[in-house]
Design a protein around this nucleic acid. Structure first.
Lengths: 213, 213
DNA sequence: TGTACATCAGTGAACGCGCGTTCACTGATGTAC
DNA sequence: TGTACATCAGTGAACGCGCGTTCACTGATGTAC
């Protein structure tokens, strides 16, 4: 729907300027709803419409369906995740991995429902079905490609033992994801201090990967 | 409800013998539904009743509500997980940890929807709200206490560096959980071979924990 | 500058859905006399 | 052994819910003449 709106001859017609603004308001409201309630189920088309002060059908002027809306909301946050990871810099690739791992965990725990939607539910079903570019998007969004680059560099410079970079990078992803998802799913459990957990875990993992001198 | 059925004077009355059997059939049907569809949403009271060949209200003779039914279905599977982990033995605690980690991952990947219900959804909301024993049950069910015991032994015997056993055990749990949950949520992604992933991850982790000679 | 007209963002009402759960009931089962 | 009765597992019908989505519409906006 959205795509058919701004086409050909119509483009230089009408448009009171409200169009883009409402789209923005919808996204903002959906995001606020997700953050406030921490419950994906609370973010229904109807609830979002009510929050914006508009009727449900008007949502469909701007988003094809609910999936597209939710995806858009999360995409924005994950761009922020990628940015947060990009921001962590160091000349040492191993140190970079450590910092980026920490940034990943912090981000996930600060935005649990976004994280849940993107990485903790089934990919197949109603979710995001026939989108072939989804996986690539997700990998970019999770900063996985950055981890992969760092791992390659660590191996090339001899900081890490020779290994398959893809396996090593996936392993590091698993570690940070494991921490985030376990804590998100069981927030009431008395976890050891999270910062300490992730630091020690990454230490052990990175140390285990290091070339022995 | 279930509890009020078999009380006091009533006990030596009636009961055509069907009672217990239906409860069993309900659990079996719910389980089959969960495995066949791999979709928790497909396991509705109505669907289960239909599968058994009974009307929805009769489910309530045997289970207080939907939550209790689902919980029961999963509990059984997690007893099996604990049993599978218990079965892995070795005189060396580190080797035991390695085997149990592998058993954990295999189990999780073989029963993804059970795993999802128990460990990948919010604990707070409709889920299992006011059950104070839930966390303990869960820890026993996930075999965490076994991991903890193994870690303690590894530290006591000097195989591991001195450390807080709770943190170390949680770290190992995070590793296996991370692998399971990431693969479950993104089954279509071309993961490196899972057996290899878990083996190498545990190797690195256990090696990193080992006392340096 | 004034009027007729096309555009199109947002509306109001309704669709059909499946859900968890409740209620008063029925009718086979087994017991007491 | 035969009959009246209590039990209680399972039924049939209905409740109210919120959901995603559709449809034909309205009425302010801006343009063309």
């Amino acid at each position: 729907l959205t795509k058919t709106l701004g086409t050909r001859k119509r483009r230089h017609r009408a448009r009171r300027g409200e169009g883009e603004r409402l789209r923005e308001e919808i996204l903002t409201a959906a995001e606020a709803l997700l953050l406030d309630t921490s419950d994906e189920a609370a973010v229904s088309i109807r609830a979002v419409a009510a929050a914006v002060g508009v009727t449900p059908p008007s949502i469909y002027r701007h988003f094809a369906d609910k999936t597209e809306l939710l995806w858009e909301v999360c995409s924005r946050h994950f761009e922020a995740l990628d940015a947060a990871m990009a921001q962590e810099e160091s000349s040492d690739p191993v140190e970079r991995l450590r910092r980026r791992g920490l940034a990943y965990v912090r981000f996930g725990l600060e935005h649990p429902e976004h994280y849940r939607i993107m990485l903790m539910r089934r990919a197949d079903p109603g979710g995001m079905p026939a989108d072939p570019g989804r996986d690539e998007k997700m990998l970019a969004a999770t900063g996985f490609s950055r981890i992969l680059d760092d791992v390659r560099e660590a191996i090339d410079t001899g900081a890490f033992k020779p290994a398959d970079p893809l396996i090593v990078a996936t392993g590091l992803w698993i570690v940070v994801h494991g921490l985030v998802s376990l804590v998100i799913s069981n927030p009431r459990w008395p976890w050891p201090p999270v910062e300490q957990m992730v630091t020690e875990l990454l230490d052990v993992q990175l140390h285990g990967l290091a070339a022995t001198k």
